[in-house]
Design a protein around this nucleic acid. Structure first.
Lengths: 188, 188
DNA sequence: CCAACCATGTAAGCTGTTACATGATTGA
DNA sequence: TCAATCATGTAACAGCTTACATGGTTGG
C-alpha cells in the first residue's frame, strides 16, 4: 500500500461542495441565493442547498481568495465571481489523478470532474487524467471480482445480488469513461 | 411536495453505518476489531473502519439496546451480539419504503437494504417494498430525463456526458431491482 | 524477545444539516 | 397591502475522520 498523505489541518481543505460551487461560478456569476436554488432544484452533487450549507461554503472560498464579490449597479445584491486563483485551483483539481477514495466511496467527485472537464483545456493533461481514471476503475473492478469469487459462496442471496450490482455499476462507469475519452481526443 | 418529517434530536437516529453493523451482527457475532477489519478490507458501505468510527457506533447501538456484549469463555475478548430489539429494528428498516434521500443521494442505503433482504422474511412486505422502490426509481428517472431535455442545450459537453451517465446509472439500478423482484417472488 | 497483530478506546476537528432569524423587493 | 419570493446569515448539532494512546497476545 502506498503511503497516504496525512495532515490534520494544514490551513484549509477544499471540499467537493466547494469545487461544485467553483465549477458553477466558472461559467457564470451568481448571487448566493441563486447558487442555493441551483443546488436545491437540480440535485447538483446531492448537496442540500440550504443556507447553512451554501453561505458558509461561500465564506470559506472567499477567505481563501478563490472567489470574490462584485457589486452590481442599481441592484443591492452582490454577485460572486471566481478569481484567477480559484480558476486555476479548479483546473488543477479537475486534472488531478483520481484518489483511491474517489474511486471507492461513491463516484460523485469523478462525475463532477468530468462535468467540468471543458474548463481544463490542456488536451494532453486531460487525456492523461482520463487514462489514469480508466485504469484505476479497471483495477478496482478486478479487486471487486476477485473478492466476489472468494466470498460469494458465504453470502446470502441478497448480498450476492447487491454485490453483483456494485460490480455492474463500476463496469458501466468504465464504459462511460471510455466514451468520454473518445469525446475528448488528443489533438494529433 | 409532501411534508417531510422534521425533528431535531428525538433521542437517537440510527444511521446507515449503524444498520451496516446491525446487518453484520444479524448473521454472526463479532468482536469490535473483527468488525473494523470487515469495514477496512471489504469496502462495506464505504465506511472507514477506523477505531474512531466503529467503536463509537457500537457504543451508540449498545446504549439503545440494539446490540449487547457476550463474554467468550477462556478468551478475554467480548463478542457483540444483536438483540431481539435490534433484529426487529433492522427488519423494519429494511422494509421501510425508500425515502427521497435514499433515492437521490447515492444508492448506498438501498443496496444495503437489499444486501440484507433475506433477513426480512415477510414475503408480502418484501414485495411491497420492492414495488415501491422500483416505482420511486422510475419516477426519479423521469424527472432526470425531463430536466435533461430542458437543460442539455445549455450544458458543456462534459456536463451532458456526466448527466447522461447519471441517468444510465439509475436505469441500470432499476433493471437490477426488477431482477431482485424476480429473485424474491411472492409465494402464491 | 521483539515485532506484528489483536483489541479498545478518546480527543479534536470539520462538514454538512436543520432550524431559527431577519429584512428587502416584487407582483397580484 | 399582503403574500411570495429574494437574500443572507447564525446557532446547535450529529457523525465521520484522523491522530493519538494504551495494553495484551502470539509467532518466529
Amino acid at each position: 500500500m502506498p503511503s497516504v498523505k496525512k495532515q490534520k489541518h494544514s490551513g484549509y481543505k477544499v471540499t467537493v461542495l466547494d469545487y461544485s460551487i467553483l465549477g458553477l461560478l466558472a461559467g457564470n456569476s451568481f448571487t448566493g441565493y441563486q447558487i442555493r436554488m441551483i443546488f436545491e432544484k437540480t440535485a447538483m452533487g446531492s448537496f442540500s442547498g440550504s443556507p447553512g450549507t451554501i453561505y458558509p461554503a461561500l465564506a470559506r472560498l472567499e477567505k481563501q481568495g478563490l472567489i470574490g464579490k462584485k457589486d452590481v449597479a442599481g441592484k443591492n445584491t452582490e454577485l460572486f465571481v471566481i478569481t484567477r486563483t480559484g480558476m486555476s485551483a479548479l483546473r488543477t483539481w479537475i486534472l488531478t489523478s483520481p484518489t483511491r477514495d474517489e474511486i471507492t466511496k461513491g463516484l460523485d467527485a469523478l462525475s463532477l470532474k468530468i462535468a467540468f472537464l471543458d474548463l481544463a483545456d490542456d488536451g494532453k493533461k486531460r487525456s492523461r487524467f482520463l487514462i489514469a481514471l480508466s485504469e484505476a476503475l479497471q483495477q478496482y473492478i478486478s479487486e471487486l471480482e476477485a473478492y466476489y469469487k472468494s466470498a460469494a459462496a458465504n453470502m446470502p442471496k441478497g448480498g450476492r445480488l447487491a454485490y453483483e450490482h456494485g460490480i455492474e455499476s463500476y463496469k458501466l462507469t468504465l464504459k462511460w469513461v471510455r466514451k468520454v475519452q473518445a469525446a475528448y481526443p488528443t489533438k494529433p
